[in-house]
């Protein structure tokens, strides 16, 4: 629906809200595997439970992408990897999940694969510690994310 005017934010308000966000969890997922693989669950849980500023100013924006594709031609190979951007203090991580395991797995198994991928992605932050513009305690960040996943009812 297009909501009533009173309720609807303006484009500027929407942009402001977006600028305030620090955690971005998305995906590049073959359409047949959505919503079986659902990054929205992770986005909502992390935004609810994690305050990124608590770990330091070295990372102000955390972008994470689940990549679930059977094949990735060379021109799309840069969907996977880990990059730090000092000018924005942002990190951009893409982790590929084993396609067949996602196809074969049930919802619970797929969530486990996604949890593993996200934690693996957080581990890549260590590769960039020399470039950080300020300290960032990535170990504490990972511990807190792990703690979320330890609760079997987190999603």
């Amino acid at each position: 629906m297009i909501a009533d005017k009173e309720q609807r934010p303006t484009a500027e308000e929407l942009q402001l809200k977006s600028d305030e966000q620090t955690l971005f969890i998305s995906g590049r997922i073959w359409h047949e595997l959505y919503p079986k693989a659902d990054p929205g669950l992770f986005l909502e849980a992390l935004r609810r439970e994690i305050d990124l500023s608590k770990y330091g100013e070295g990372i102000a924006k955390f972008y994470f992408t689940f990549v679930i594709m059977e094949e990735l031609s060379p021109n799309f190979s840069n969907w996977v990897g880990s990059d730090y951007y000092p000018e924005k203090a942002s990190i951009d991580i893409g982790i590929r999940l084993p396609y067949q395991d996602v196809v074969d797995g049930d919802e619970k198994a797929v969530i486990k694969l996604m949890e593993k991928a996200l934690l693996e992605g957080i581990d890549t932050i260590a590769e960039h510690k020399q470039e950080f513009i300020a300290p960032f305690d990535y170990r504490a960040f990972k511990n807190d994310v792990e703690a979320i996943f330890e609760n079997p009812d987190w999603y």
Partner: peptide
Amino acid sequence: GEAERYPG
């Protein structure tokens, strides 16, 4: 692929 994986 875009320059950045999730291009902010």
